[in-house]
Amino acid sequence: MPKRKKADLPRTELNITSMMDLVLNLLMFFVLTSNFALAELPKVEIPELGAGSQARANEKPDKIVVSVVAEGDSGNAVQIKVGSSNEVAPGDYGRLTQLLLVEKTRSKDVAIDLRADKRLHYESVAPIMKAITEAGISHVNIVAGLPDSE
């Protein structure tokens, strides 16, 4: 008797087909849009330029990125990073030039993204720009916030 009762019960099943469609689409979206190269760069508060910003989206992601990390609000640099791996101590601008010269021999038309923290004082950034020009690289892009979309 109990057996028959069990068989008579309607089988309750969730229809998850549409949810699966959604989940797979979301998955594909995040797989394709996630950018891991940027995540490797050190955290820097980039300058904000508001609505009149002339900054454009970075078309070529294979540039050399020189990041300058600030030491809080003191205005001093605490770390200079070339790309995601090479680290230069602040003040060691000769080594920075050396590193950039090596990069320059690797590819002729080299461009640099200067990604400096907005709280840095000019005296911490100017020697870095000088070191870049001393390596014979004149094409420098200054990383800044994109125009506010209002």
């Binding site: 995040f30 797989v31 900054a55 970075n58 001393e134 690289i137 800044a144």
Partner: peptide
Amino acid sequence: LLLFFVLTASFSIGEGVVPADLPVGSGG
């Protein structure tokens, strides 16, 4: 996988570049 990509994706990076051509050579 979905949770991984949702959590690792970073959307807040509104970084762009202002191109500059600095003079080459010492002395800036």
